Simulated assay, not measured.
Amino acid sequence: MLSYQHIYHAGNLADVQKHALLCVMLDYMTRKDKPLSYIETHAGRGLYDLTAPEAVKTGEAAQGVARAGDWFAPDHPYARAMAQVKAAHGVDAYPGSPLLAALSLRPGDTIHLAELHPQEFTALRQAMRPYGAQVHKQDGLELAQSICPPTPRRGLMLIDPSYEVKSDYATLPGQIAALHRKWNVGVIALWYPILTSGAHKPMLRALEQQGLPDTLRHEVTFPPAREGHGMIGSGMFIVNAPWGTQDEAKRLGTLFAAL
């Protein structure tokens, strides 16, 4: 359960989809002059070096963000945050979702990040120290259930497990329904992999039976990053999807379909 490290996959095509949608949602939500809470249940280390041996070994970034660099105009929220990270940390730096969120939010907003892996937690705490994030070495879903509804009440939660624990597929629909009951105004975004095994399909059926409001399901497919790799796509299931998210999802879908 504590073996997963996202450095092997940072900047892949799944990150491009997830991070572009995250930045668009937060950009829209921060236009209103009211504070936000951002909660992330599986935060990783927050900042990645794409020249690290782990990233080079899988080649996923080379097949991902390196190919999608021209998909985003300079004023796109994702491109703006990426430019800030590269200016501060070098051209080979890639931001995880905690750092993208921090760069999208404002001084009065609140950030809660959970990460259990000891090395990832240490790196996350260091990367996020300048942003005043509350970093928790705790099971992310336990944290989410304990602080919902958060203060401020407006906000967004990203649930982004590694799915190494196969029971996640069965338990997440009930967890998300419970979170929504506690926090009916919250945007809850779940990322999931699309695998050749189809392991995600029963989870999606269960989610769609929960009666959740204003849901957006967005999936993209792409070639395997290497021979034998089981992930052939990426999905986001979003509760209370903010205005404009559907338009960005449609745009991304067209771009991914052309790969």
Rank of each mutant, 00 (worst) to 15 (best):
G59T: 05
V24Y: 07
Y163Q: 04
R153E: 11
G230C: 11
P98Q: 06
A14C: 05
I238S: 00
N12L: 04
D139E: 15
G140F: 03
F237I: 05
A241Q: 00
Q119V: 13
Y169T: 04
G69K: 11
D160S: 09
Q175F: 10
G69M: 12
H9Y: 10
S197C: 14
L172C: 05
V56G: 07
L22R: 03
G64T: 03
T30M: 06
P202K: 00
S104Y: 07
W183A: 09
S97M: 13
G198R: 08
P223T: 07
A189P: 12
K250E: 14
Q138R: 15
R106K: 11
S167A: 15
H6T: 04
R31K: 10
I238L: 11
P77R: 06
Y94I: 03
E248H: 05
L195H: 04
L47Y: 03
W243K: 13
E208L: 12
A114D: 04
Y8H: 08
T245G: 02
I7S: 13
R153S: 12
Q126L: 15
L21H: 01
L195P: 01
L252K: 01
G155Q: 00
A144I: 07
F237T: 01
Y48K: 02
V165S: 09
A127P: 00
P242R: 09
Q63F: 14
V165H: 12
S37A: 10
Y131R: 03
A241E: 03
L143F: 06
A68D: 00
A62H: 00
A55R: 05
K18Q: 02
F237V: 10
V185I: 15
D160C: 11
S234C: 02
W71G: 02
I7R: 15
P149L: 14
T196S: 07
I176Y: 04
H180A: 13
R125A: 15
H6A: 05
H218V: 07
P95C: 08
A93G: 04
H76G: 11
P193E: 08
H229Y: 15
A249K: 02
L21F: 04
G64I: 01
T110Q: 12
L26V: 02
S37I: 09
P77N: 06
V187G: 00
A257G: 10
A83T: 09
L116F: 06
L103D: 05
Y131A: 03
L116M: 14
I147A: 08
L179F: 12
V85H: 04
A189K: 07
K34T: 13
M203R: 01
R31F: 06
A66N: 12
M203D: 03
T196P: 00
V91Q: 14
L172S: 00
H117F: 02
D15G: 00
P152W: 06
A55I: 01
Y169R: 06
D109C: 09
Q210P: 07
K57G: 02
V24L: 05
Y28F: 13
H136N: 03
G46Y: 06
A66I: 11
G59N: 06
D33P: 11
V56Q: 11
H76V: 11
V91G: 13
F121D: 03
P173W: 04
L103R: 14
H89P: 01
S167H: 13
S104E: 10
D247P: 00
Y131N: 11
F72V: 06
G140T: 01
G230M: 15
E208C: 14
G59S: 07
M236I: 09
